[in-house]
Design a protein around this nucleic acid. Structure first.
Ligand SMILES: NC(=O)c1ccc[n+]([C@@H]2O[C@H](COP(=O)([O-])OP(=O)(O)OC[C@H]3O[C@@H](n4cnc5c(N)ncnc54)[C@H](O)[C@@H]3O)[C@@H](O)[C@H]2O)c1
Ligand SMILES: NC(=O)c1ccc[n+]([C@@H]2O[C@H](COP(=O)([O-])OP(=O)(O)OC[C@H]3O[C@@H](n4cnc5c(N)ncnc54)[C@H](O)[C@@H]3O)[C@@H](O)[C@H]2O)c1
Lengths: 206, 206
DNA sequence: ATGAACTTGTGAATTTCTTCACAAGTTATC
DNA sequence: GATAACTTGTGAAGAAATTCACAAGTTCAT
């Protein structure tokens, strides 16, 4: 199978969100044009993105909202539940642990870790904070799919190394540090400072 | 001036972070190769990115770390301080307000707004939460450059409309909703669900 | 001075991504 | 069942981003 571009995957994720919206409003079918208008893209782009995976529409009519949503969930791997652990129970880690929007989308937060003895044992949103040291054993016992890193930038690399060693193959990194991991591990970074700097650039050179 | 790609700006932001790191460690000059290794890119990419703005290096030697950092700050518009307001003093809004990493990079949080009367008047990290209604007047009085939206997705569009009307021309959106704004307004979105779905895709099709 | 070892800056080549444009298929109407 | 009005799926074209490759410049050792 041809390599799928990151930008395509991001758009699929967007399309799915729109489709769920249409589904909720009881709309049965939708055209690539309507889907494109919502996402700030073009109908050709929508059709091309979908064409990598098959043909899901009906000429003259458009796409069945329910059917396309189901296919996108399948493509994105959202038909199963993913086990997520959060490392770093600080401000951002706690906010994430308390956010129920992820569970709704099939990302179940199963554990929260921290290295600070003062935090271990407390709970966040019903989850008892575990000692970081216990991670390798815990993960052996109850495997996790995705690790969310919400630790200071200075600890991010060592925590990532530990997580990779424990066999976890996907990381969502909030620390402003470029992680070095084997290329069998998928990493996505949420870098807010970078987004702000992008806005700064736009305001300066707009 | 030629339009600069978003991907280029993101990389400049990365380079700047590495340079600051090198600066701290007392390293005086650096080659495009070393800079590239850090960011997971290539030396040609680094040089091309920089070439859009001028030539800052010395052949045979590389770049002066301090000088290049200064030029990047200038290019990105980071020589001044930007006034940032946060709208929505919930879990994520509060985490952001309490985070001092932004101020360090020149993004000064000057106000926090919320529509919930129970929250208005309380403070977060020394800032008193203001009523959303007061935003237009407050902004007239003390202009803000960037609005961070940390409100539920259902309110995001109306809040964005209000912010745009108040004259703010840059938005960082945390709500999982595609904002419609005039193209004079810069928008960046932090969409964590999308990142997680990207990881789900990678794990499924890896 | 000279040569060896580096490194930048940049056109050109290549690869990747997006848009165009249209045949082919569907539905609705009369 | 003929016609009009849509819409998909997809090669081909076009645009954009990345990588190549090398002339030109710098430093250092001898
Ligand atoms: N808070 C924000 O709004 C925000 C915004 C952007 C980026 N970030 C980044 O997110 C990360 C966390 O930020 P925060 O504001 O939540 O910080 P924080 O200080 O509130 O929390 C960090 C937590 O990580 C724990 N920790 C430290 N080292 C650890 C280790 N080796 N293993 C496990 N846990 C460890 C600490 O005990 C603490 O509980 C930082 O890298 C920060 O730069 C935060
Ligand atoms: N918390 C997270 O980790 C997280 C992660 C990803 C995305 N998000 C998104 O960020 C946004 C905020 O999430 P949260 O967890 O902080 O929610 P929250 O419910 O804790 O906070 C939302 C806040 O916004 C305020 N608010 C509601 N409507 C408003 C309006 N019209 N104007 C001003 N304020 C208003 C509420 O009073 C509340 O204080 C949501 O869109 C959520 O989907 C949050």
């Amino acid at each position: 199978m041809k390599r799928i571009a990151d930008s395509t995957v991001r758009r699929l994720s967007l399309y799915l969100r729109f489709l769920e919206d249409f589904e909720k409003r009881g709309i049965g079918t939708i055209s690539s044009d309507e889907l494109a208008a919502r996402g700030g893209t073009t109908s050709a782009q929508v059709r091309k993105d979908l064409s990598f995976f098959g043909s899901f529409g009906k000429r003259g009519l458009g796409y069945s909202v329910a059917e396309l949503a189901a296919r996108l969930r399948q493509i994105l791997g959202l038909e199963r539940e993913w086990q997520v652990i959060i490392i770093g129970a600080g401000k951002i880690g706690a906010a994430l642990a308390q956010y129920h929007g992820f569970a709704q989308r099939g990302f179940r937060i199963v554990a929260v870790y921290d290295s600070d003895p003062a935090k271990v044992g407390r709970s966040v949103d019903g989850l008892v904070i575990q000692a970081l040291d216990s991670l390798p054993d815990e993960v052996k016992h109850q495997p996790a799919d995705i690790a969310v890193l919400a630790v200071p930038a200075t600890s991010a690399q060592e925590v990532a190394d530990m997580v990779v060693k424990a066999g976890i193959r996907a990381i969502l990194n909030f620390a402003p540090h470029q992680l070095q991991v084997p290329d069998t591990v998928a990493v996505k970074a949420v870098n807010m400072a970078m987004e702000l700097e992008g806005l700064s650039f736009a305001l300066t050179n707009g």
